[in-house]
Design a protein around this nucleic acid. Structure first.
Lengths: 213, 213
DNA sequence: AGAATTTAATAGTACGCACTACAGAATCGA
DNA sequence: TCGATTCTGTAGTGCGTACTATTAAATTCT
């Protein structure tokens, strides 16, 4: 389904052409899912946000609500989520990387014109059995983010920046805690400046660590 | 509706007596809302958890799904939420109070036999318009919790424990961030021990504050 | 005992949901 | 020009939702 869609753009168009842009529609759908969550986003609202396309066009282009959601998550990771991962990898030290990660998080959680908070948190969270698939999907990405943090800390240990005695998993869990908390605070309307203050607080966790090294 | 229900227990019972205990049923309903969220909890599941009561009994006793939810939130605040507020008030110092607050939070987020995480976070937080009432309700309680933290810090300033220059609102926002983050981590299955580690990290935010005082 | 009152049980109702059947319209290749 | 192909628009389908109408059953008061 998705493969044929890729080929379609490469070979010459056959049949009646689409009246909407698939990428734009996907971007709009991502925002609806982001703002309302998987269950809260009805097909009516999605279709309206996607330029008023009708159900058959919707299903022909995206397959189902769940497939659209997964594509939206991928788009989010590729775009708004990317700076966080990039910050984690490009920081010269582990501490710099973590701070840049949190800065990037707050930045993306407070972008004007976009829903506040993290899509990976608000996209699908209620433990409703019928949506277990999508919830496990975003949960897996949250876990992957935590593992990436832990990996960066591991590098810090290997490079001698951080003490070998540091509990890397727990430290990664702490910064995931902060990111998740920032997501909720952002959604609750806390201004960006206050969130940045929280970053400073969270970075203070390093003080006992680096002074002991 | 609720007043008459209170009086009912004081005067002699008239008419056919209930076959279920209202308090027990409410407690069960709270757990369902807590685990699945307001939208995720269907009346079928609620009624089943409440001892298999039928719809008319349900509506006669609780009015509607929304009224039941509000009662469940009140019950949560009175019971599982109370130790957090109590810790905040009874700590001898502001720092002790905050630590006791976080300890109480983790304790209640990880209670065996109960849903993990915070009801005030997971009870209702999808921005779906039809549920705006209940979402604003729990959001208001989250904000009240944050104000309580800020008030305790204020007392710490007045008693000379904390510097007057401290940004109390921002500091309260930070610890709310941690609590909210812990709620999500708990729901994601992070073990209690790791959450306690995060508490230690969060308490390190005081180091620069108290050393400057 | 009998009237009054409250709950229980059965069987629904109206509505919103994700999703689809079908016929017509717009483009392509030959 | 004509058939093949792909999209569009209208009008639905079946299902799960919160909620209710109606009748019967169990208790209290007189």
């Amino acid at each position: 389904m998705l493969c044929s869609d890729i080929y379609k753009n490469q070979m010459t168009q056959r049949g009646r052409p689409r009246t909407f842009d698939r990428q734009t529609a996907l971007r709009q759908a991502m925002q609806v899912f982001w703002a309302l969550g998987y269950e809260g986003a009805t097909l009516n609202e999605l279709q309206a946000a996607m330029g008023g396309i009708a159900p058959p066009s919707f299903y022909a282009a995206f397959g189902s609500k769940e497939e659209l959601f997964r594509e939206a998550v991928e788009l989010y990771s590729r775009t708004l989520g990317a700076p966080m991962m990039k910050a984690l990898e490009e920081g010269l030290t582990a501490l710099d990387s973590i701070r840049a990660l949190l800065d990037a998080a707050v930045e993306s959680f407070c972008k004007p014109g976009l829903p506040r908070g993290c899509f990976l948190v608000f996209g699908a969270f209620n433990n409703v059995p019928s949506n277990k698939n999508v919830e496990d999907y975003v949960r897996g990405l949250r876990v992957r983010r935590q593992k990436a943090i832990q990996k960066r800390l591991q590098r810090g240990v290997e490079e001698g920046e951080l003490p070998k005695t540091l509990d890397l998993a727990a430290m990664a869990a702490f910064y995931t805690t902060v990111i998740d908390g920032l997501a909720i605070q952002a959604r609750d309307g806390v201004p960006q400046k206050a969130l940045r203050f929280s970053i400073n607080c969270a970075m203070a966790a390093w003080d006992p660590v680096v002074s002991a090294n």
